[in-house]
Amino acid sequence: MKKSLMFVMSIVLVFTLAACGGNNGGTAGGNNSTNGTNEGAGTNTNTGAGNEGTDAAADLSGSYLATGSSALQPLVDQAAQMFMEKNSGVTIQVQGGGSGTGLAQVSEGQANIGNSDVFAEEKLDADKAAELKDHQVAVVAMAAVVNPEVTVDNLTKQQLVDIFTGTITNWSEVGGADQKIVIVNRPASSGTRATFEKYALGTKAEDLQGMIQEDSSGTVKKLVGETPGAIGYLALSYLDDTVKTVKYEGVEATEENVANGTYPVWAYEHMYTKGEPDAALQAFLDYMVSDEVQNGVVVELGYIPVSKMQITRDIDGNVTNK
């Protein structure tokens, strides 16, 4: 009886201590475990203490946390796995949580990398955003998609604006059958929606009565594919036969059209660091834009490699040829 009591007590004590350790990331630097819940440990940069047993050949070491955009998460995660195989001294944890979370955490120093679908300036205060260094690792393009039974093939910018602000409510007004338009939008805070509003609409969409809002691309695709008269927008990597892609101002949403600048609805995927990254982190960010990742994982996951872009675009939308 007494022994089992002591056992339970010691377990409780261990948990309490573990919780305390997690709170001050500074002392937990030796903890190189991939424990996803213990964020504090992952944020500590380059404490040599935890990496004594590392391969002599790998001169880079440290444990890092990348957090933010769930759209970018699979790409960073796969690249990080590959990078860690080559550099056994480096540990990189990748977590989701949304662009806002990523930017906030990197700005506050809780994470080493903040993954974001949008420019930091669009979410953070100017002085906070100025501290962050932008690393553009991929391009994601979006296309308006409709239910396969909708007969419309092309929508102009003005028609899209009218649809998403509720001026046009029937497909017959844009050359389709007499059918009610069902909008499948994203929440107002979403990075995907911000990109679509900025580059496809040029204005804010309204949260209309009766519209559907979903956060995940999978759900948007399912609903657009099943709901008669539905319209939504998806990243190119999600497109398949269950939904119909419409042209934007007569331009088809293809990789070439994005790369040469004729199709405007796309955004950079950003990985932000606070100030200049240290050696190991810089190596990882270089690896992200290396040919191996850009022509490998980036293409596999449906992004467009940054290296293929013939143009660059700044936060205000000014396009320059490379």
Binding site: S70, G96, G97, G98, S99, G100, T101, P187, A188, S189, S190, G191, D207, L208, Q209, G210, M211, I212, Q213, E214, D215
Partner: peptide, 26 residues
């Protein structure tokens, strides 16, 4: 998840929890 009071039981609506989960991370 439309942030409106629906006019029927079959029209898009929102709850406190759905509004939180939809936007908290972003």
């Amino acid at each position: 998840n439309a942030p409106h009071i629906p006019r029927s039981l079959f029209e898009s609506a929102s709850t406190l929890t759905s509004a939180i989960t939809l936007s908290m991370g972003n």
